[in-house]
Design a protein around this nucleic acid. Structure first.
Length: 293
DNA sequence: ATCCTATCCTGTAGGC
DNA sequence: TGCCTACAGGATAGGA
C-alpha cells in the first residue's frame, strides 16, 4: 500500500521528530517479516543517535551515528507510529518498539508482515541486497522522456507493469501507476517498447506531478496507511481512476474500467487512454448490444 | 535475458 | 450471526 508519496510523508515526519533523539532500547517481536530482521539489530542500535532520515523509492533509511543505517520498507501494511506518551498496552502486530532516552517511543507495526527491517553500514548502503537493484528515485532524479524511451526500448511488458518495476524507477506502486498513465493519456496495456518518445515525455512529466501532488496531500489512505501520528493522507480525494471502476471519467464522463495485469488491478479510461487521446465532441452513445465501432 | 506465476501474511468486505 | 471467498497499496523466487 505505501508507495513513494506515503513513504516520503513518513520520512518527513520522522525527520522532524526523531532526528537528534537517542535510542535507549529496542524490543523486537521475534516474528519474521518479508525477510528475517537483522540478527542483533536491537543491541546494535542501542545508545545510537538518529542523525538523518533518507528515502530511496519505497525504502526508508534511518541514519544512526556510528555509521549504521536502519533500513525499513513498509510492504503492504507497515507503519511507523510515534508516541510522545506511549500507551501502556502494545497494539497487535507491533514488531519493533524503540524507546528513546527522553521516554518517547517509535513503533513499527505490520499486520501482513511484508515489510523489511534491516541494519546496514551507511557507507555500504548502495550495495545492500535490499537496495542494490533499485532504479533511480524519481523525486531525487526526475525522469525524462528520452531517458524512459531509451529504458523501454525492446521491452515487451505492458507499460503499467513497466512503471511498477522498481529496478527501472523506484517508488511507483499500483495506485500511482494507474493515475500517471491516465493523466498521460496512455493505455496501460500498451507494450512499453511501443510507447512513443512524446508519450514517454508525458509520462515523465506526470510521474513528477502526480507524486509531488500526492506528497503535498500526505499520500493516499484507504485504511491501513497512516502518517507517523496516525493521520490519514488525503490524496484519495484526487484520484482520477484508481478504485473508481464503473464511475464516470472526470474528463470525458465515460465509465472507468478495471482490468487485471500481473494479478493486480489496473484502472483506466478506455476513451481518454487510447492512441490519439480522448475523442473530442459529445460522447457517442452506443445502443445496448451494438458492437463498439 | 525477459517475462509471468505463485507465494508470503492478515484483515476485511461482500455474498449467501 | 456466521461461514465462505475474493481481494488488498509489494516484492521476489523460480520456471517457461
Amino acid at each position: 500500500m505505501p508507495e513513494l508519496p506515503e513513504v516520503e510523508t513518513v520520512r518527513r515526519n520522522l525527520e522532524s521528530t526523531v532526528v537528534g533523539r537517542t535510542i535507549e532500547q529496542c524490543r523486537l517481536s521475534g516474528k519474521k517479516l518479508r525477510a528475517r530482521i537483522t540478527s542483533g539489530l536491537a543491541e546494535r542500535i542501542r545508545r545510537r543517535r538518529v542523525v538523518n532520515v533518507r528515502r530511496h523509492g519505497k525504502y526508508l533509511l534511518i541514519g544512526l551515528d556510528g555509521g549504521l543505517s536502519l533500513i525499513s520498507h513498509l510492504g503492504m501494511s507497515g507503519r511507523w507510529l510515534f508516541y510522545a506518551d506511549p500507551p501502556a498496552r502494545v497494539l497487535p502486530h507491533v514488531h519493533a518498539r524503540i524507546r528513546h532516552t527522553d521516554g518517547t517511543e517509535l513503533w513499527f507495526q505490520d499486520p501482513r508482515r511484508f515489510g523489511v527491517l534491516r541494519l546496514a553500514h551507511t557507507e555500504r548502503l548502495a550495495s545492500d541486497p535490499a537496495l542494490r537493484l533499485l532504479g533511480p528515485d524519481p523525486i531525487a532524479t526526475p525522469p525524462t522522456g528520452t531517458g524512459l524511451h531509451a529504458l523501454a526500448r525492446g521491452t515487451r511488458v505492458a507499460v503499467k507493469n513497466f512503471l511498477l518495476d522498481q529496478r527501472r524507477i523506484a517508488g511507483i506502486g499500483n495506485i500511482y501507476a494507474s493515475e500517471i498513465l491516465h493523466r498521460a493519456a496512455v493505455d496501460p496495456r500498451r507494450r512499453a517498447g511501443t510507447v512513443s518518445q512524446a508519450e514517454w515525455t508525458a509520462i515523465a512529466r506526470e510521474i513528477v506531478a502526480v507524486l509531488g501532488e500526492a506528497i503535498a496531500r500526505m499520500g493516499t489512505t484507504f485504511d491501513m496507511y497512516r502518517t507517523l501520528w496516525n493521520e490519514p493522507g488525503t490524496y484519495r480525494d484526487q484520484l482520477l481512476v484508481y478504485d473508481r471502476a464503473g464511475e464516470p471519467c472526470r474528463a470525458c464522463g465515460r465509465p472507468i474500467r478495471r482490468i487485471v495485469q500481473g494479478q493486480r488491478s489496473t484502472f483506466y479510461c478506455p476513451s481518454c487512454q487510447r492512441r490519439g487521446g480522448r475523442a473530442r465532441g459529445p460522447q457517442i452513445v452506443v445502443a445496448r448490444g451494438t458492437p463498439d465501432p
